Computed example of a mutant assay.
Amino acid sequence: MPAKFRAALAGIVYCLRTQVNMAIHLAAMMAVIGAGWYFHVQPWEWAALTIAITMVLAAETFNTAVEVTVNLYTSKYHPLARIAKDVAAGAVLITALGAVAVAYIIFGPRLGF
């Protein structure tokens, strides 16, 4: 396995071991995949769900990278460090809300919403 691929996997494993929200996102992903199988979603719906899931997981890893980088730079409180962390967390929230919207569009009618 190439070294860069191993490094990327190590980053994902780091997120899984240290970020509670990553575990929550993975649990949500498994629930969505299970619901997709149960409701026999169409290929275009799988595509939308896959994109939404991928974006949330990627945003969470970028958020972790920002947090670790800021923590490396300073252990003291700094307003710009707080802004960097808050903006990165905001990106996760935006993608998660988008994923909820996609899930609502796809599963809502099947659940009577």
Rank of each mutant, 00 (worst) to 15 (best):
P2G: 12
K4H: 13
K4Q: 07
F5I: 07
R6Q: 13
A7V: 11
A8H: 06
A10E: 15
G11T: 04
I12M: 15
V13K: 12
L16A: 15
L16K: 05
L16W: 07
T18D: 12
Q19L: 02
Q19C: 03
V20S: 12
N21W: 07
M22Q: 07
A23Q: 13
A23N: 12
I24M: 13
H25G: 10
H25V: 14
A27M: 11
A28E: 03
A28S: 11
M29Y: 03
M29S: 10
A31Y: 09
A31D: 03
I33S: 04
I33L: 10
G34Q: 05
A35L: 14
A35M: 10
A35C: 08
A35D: 03
G36H: 02
G36E: 09
W37P: 01
Y38I: 04
Y38S: 05
Y38Q: 06
V41G: 01
P43Q: 09
P43C: 11
P43W: 01
W44G: 05
W44I: 11
W46N: 05
A48M: 14
L49G: 07
T50M: 13
I51T: 13
A52D: 10
I53P: 00
T54V: 13
M55H: 05
L57T: 02
A58E: 04
A58P: 00
A59E: 00
E60S: 14
E60A: 14
E60I: 05
N63F: 02
N63I: 06
T64K: 09
T64N: 12
T64F: 13
V66H: 02
V66F: 06
E67L: 07
E67K: 12
E67Q: 10
E67P: 03
T69Y: 14
L72G: 03
Y73H: 03
T74R: 13
K76G: 11
K76Q: 11
K76E: 14
K76S: 13
Y77E: 08
H78N: 13
H78F: 13
P79D: 15
A81R: 04
R82C: 03
A84E: 09
K85D: 08
D86M: 07
V87F: 14
A88F: 07
A88K: 04
G90F: 11
V92K: 02
V92A: 07
I94K: 03
T95S: 01
T95Y: 00
T95N: 07
L97A: 10
G98M: 14
V100C: 04
V100L: 15
V100H: 02
A103S: 15
A103P: 01
Y104I: 15
I105P: 00
F107E: 07
F107M: 08
F107T: 01
F107K: 02
G108Y: 01
R110K: 14
R110C: 05
G112S: 04
